[in-house]
């Protein structure tokens, strides 16, 4: 607003495409039911056309776990230093996939809902938010599968399991930040949607989803190099999230540097969420306009 323009008449407020951040968040909160309804709808619709219907939410994680266990545990034998390999996988794979699916889902959330964007006015961040909520619903089922497997493989339900809750809260914040950033980038350059699967394939191997990083790092002869690798793993938020979950749920796994992992998790989650909100809101006027 320039000095020359007279102020608004009483009771009127300036219409702006990008409201202040506080106002933007208030609008999102007011419409939270939309994000939840959208997420639940997509979650249920996903397998609605299948003969086994909702059972696929359960079968999917079971089959995935079975295949990774067969190939990496039984055939290739990368289960070095891990007593309960199937429990180890169960506590890692689904945590990793929660981030992977949230962020790739965020990237396609705008392009999948173009007609909705063009017909109604609502804060566009609701779309990546509902993509993350949808994946949280998927994770809920997968965690039930994982917990069952842990208990079947003679892990004990201990108070330490409660520590998983703050880890998941932090991870959800991280995922939302990532989904918001991916959504804006993919709206500008659709190619991002094709690149992301490769990024996550690389991260999958770099996050120790299938192997215990602590057991592989000491093989390096040079201590300085070893330290660099440890630091790199802990800086990787996905490694920190899933290592923390393993640390608190598996009796046979005790990770080093748990405090640094918490630090990494907190810094990434808070940082990425704030950056994501600011970055996404700055593009509010451009979504769905090419």
């Amino acid at each position: 607003m320039s000095v020359a323009t007279p102020g608004p008449p009483s009771g009127l407020k300036p219409m702006s495409v990008t409201p202040p951040l506080r106002e933007y968040i208030a609008r999102l909160w007011q419409r939270r039911e939309f994000a939840m309804s959208m997420a639940a709808g997509e979650f249920h619709a996903k397998n609605a056309a299948m003969s086994l219907g909702g059972w696929w939410h359960l079968l999917n994680p079971l089959l995935q776990l079975g295949i990774y266990w067969l190939i990496f545990g039984v055939l290739l034998g990368v289960d070095r230093g891990v007593v309960n390999f199937i429990g180890f996988l169960a506590a890692g794979i689904f945590i990793f996939q929660y981030s992977q699916r949230s962020i790739t889902g965020g990237a396609s959330s705008i392009s999948k809902n173009l007609s909705l964007i063009r017909s109604l006015q609502f804060p566009r961040a609701l779309l990546p938010i509902s993509a993350v909520l949808r994946e949280a619903l998927t994770l809920r089922v997968a965690l039930l599968v994982a917990a069952t497997i842990l208990l079947l493989t003679r892990e004990w339900l201990t108070v330490a399991w409660l520590a998983v809750i703050p880890v998941l809260v932090l991870q959800s914040m991280f995922n939302l930040g990532g989904a918001l950033i991916a959504a804006r980038l993919a709206d500008k350059v659709r190619d991002i949607e094709n690149v992301l699967p490769f990024v996550f394939r690389l991260l999958f191997y770099a996050s120790g989803v299938l192997f215990l990083a602590d057991r592989y790092i000491p093989d390096l002869a040079d201590p300085a190099l070893e330290q660099t690798f440890r630091t790199l793993f802990i800086i990787n938020p996905l490694y920190s999230f899933l290592s923390l979950v393993r640390h608190y749920t598996l009796l046979t796994i005790s990770q080093d540097h748990v405090d640094l992992m918490w630090l990494s998790a907190v810094v990434w989650s808070v940082g990425l969420l704030i950056i994501g909100l600011v970055f996404f809101r700055a593009g509010e006027a451009t979504y769905g306009r090419g």
């Binding site: 419409r31 039911e33 939309f34 909705l116 609502f122």
Partner: peptide, 10 residues
């Protein structure tokens, strides 16, 4: 449902 919720209806 989705349209009304998106517009801020409870």
């Amino acid at each position: 449902e989705l349209g009304c919720l998106a517009l801020g209806m409870s």
